Amino acid sequence: MTPMSLLVLGGAGYIGSHMVKRLLEEKEDVIVIDDLSKGHEKAVDKGAVFIKGDIRDKNLLRSVFEKYKIEAVFHFCAYMQIPESLVKPNDYFDNNIYGLIALIDVMKDFKINKLIFSSSAAVYGIPESSPINEETSKSPINPYGLTKLVMEQMMKWNGSAYGINWLAFRYFNVAGAQMDCSIGEDHHPESHLIPIVLEAAAGKREYVAMCGNDYATRDGYNIRDYVHVIDLVDAHYLGLTYLRKGGKSDVFNIGSKHGYSVKEVVDAVSEQTGINFKVINAPRRGGDPDELVADSEKIRHVLGWNPRYSDINTMIQSAWNWTKMHPNGFKQ
């Protein structure tokens, strides 16, 4: 009997590669599709089957579904740089929205009925209050966030039409790396706070700019919620288990329920690395909310998610260890 496989789209990226590693630890059979426009083939565990390709290529998807008996699909292949989405919105509509249309079209033909989707807190836009629960009003302020919201709605309607059970996980901020330093975060350009600050600690960046110090927060700097990438992929595996047991389609926030300000993150990096780097204050960026913190009670209650690495120092230290061991990321 042919074993059932799990398909990880975008499995060469930061989160996707950690998901692949997690699935292999559970002795799952894993197939990866990634076009390597953002990811790194070296990040894909050798225990997985790697196929270079684009989610929008229906013929490729059909060939994979014909060759392998796919039980469920993990979707990590959306474009995700907010500044880029503002200057190249059609690239985001094409890759993200059309990519999901192509995927669902082929999934329904092969009667694959489990889909786990990487969504984002960007669907909320600038919320009126914090912490944010799943019912908080949604008003994205950039094309990236809009695509994620549209994709959630697409899964809702297509799921009803074709019997696909899906889960959407709305991430807040993801950080950290594998504890053995085998894989970690390697984006070009980098837009996430913790790796940017670590680049300054490593001497790759002249300074860290903290944008805006007059927010309505405890220290004047905006506050964000961070979750360790290992805890994040643990949540996805719990989601797969939930769907396997007949769980119904749903949406979950993934966050720690505790926020850290930009200054607190910068200070923590300095403390964890033992390095004093240059920090400057810069003007606010447009559209930056004062505080984004997740109410993650739902995922804890429904899926039994219990993060193991929720301390910001653990996230920073694992990311710093990866940075020191791989100063050029996956290039070396």
Rank of each mutant, 00 (worst) to 15 (best):
M1T: 13
L6A: 04
L6V: 12
A12Y: 07
H18M: 11
V20I: 12
L23W: 02
L24M: 10
V32G: 02
L36W: 11
A43Y: 13
D45G: 10
G47E: 12
G47N: 12
G47C: 13
I51R: 09
I51T: 01
I51Y: 11
G53P: 08
G53D: 02
R56F: 09
L61N: 01
R62F: 13
E66C: 07
E66G: 10
K67R: 15
K69Q: 14
V73Y: 08
H75Y: 11
H75R: 08
A78I: 01
Y79N: 04
E84T: 13
S85Q: 05
L86Q: 14
P89T: 09
N90V: 14
D91K: 14
D94G: 01
N95P: 00
N95E: 04
G99I: 08
A102H: 09
L103A: 12
K111L: 13
K114E: 07
Y124H: 10
E128D: 09
S129W: 06
S130I: 02
I132N: 06
E134Y: 00
P143K: 08
G145Y: 06
T147C: 03
K148E: 01
L149I: 13
M151G: 06
M155W: 07
S160Q: 11
W166I: 00
A168T: 04
N173P: 07
V174T: 15
A175D: 03
Q178V: 05
I183E: 05
H188M: 12
A200V: 09
A202I: 04
E206T: 07
V208E: 08
A209Y: 09
G212N: 03
A216H: 12
A216I: 14
D219W: 13
R224L: 08
D225A: 06
D234W: 05
A235G: 05
A235S: 11
A235C: 05
H236R: 13
L240I: 08
R244L: 10
G246D: 06
K248Y: 10
S249G: 09
F252E: 00
F252Y: 07
K263L: 11
E264D: 09
V266D: 06
A268S: 13
I275S: 04
V279R: 06
I280L: 12
I280P: 12
R284Y: 14
R284E: 09
R285E: 05
G286I: 15
E291Q: 12
V293W: 00
V293Q: 00
D295T: 02
E297L: 04
E297F: 02
L303H: 07
W305A: 00
N306P: 14
N306Q: 13
D311N: 07
D311G: 03
I312D: 00
I312F: 01
T314I: 10
I316N: 00
Q317K: 08
A319C: 08
T323Q: 15
T323E: 14
P327H: 13
K331G: 06
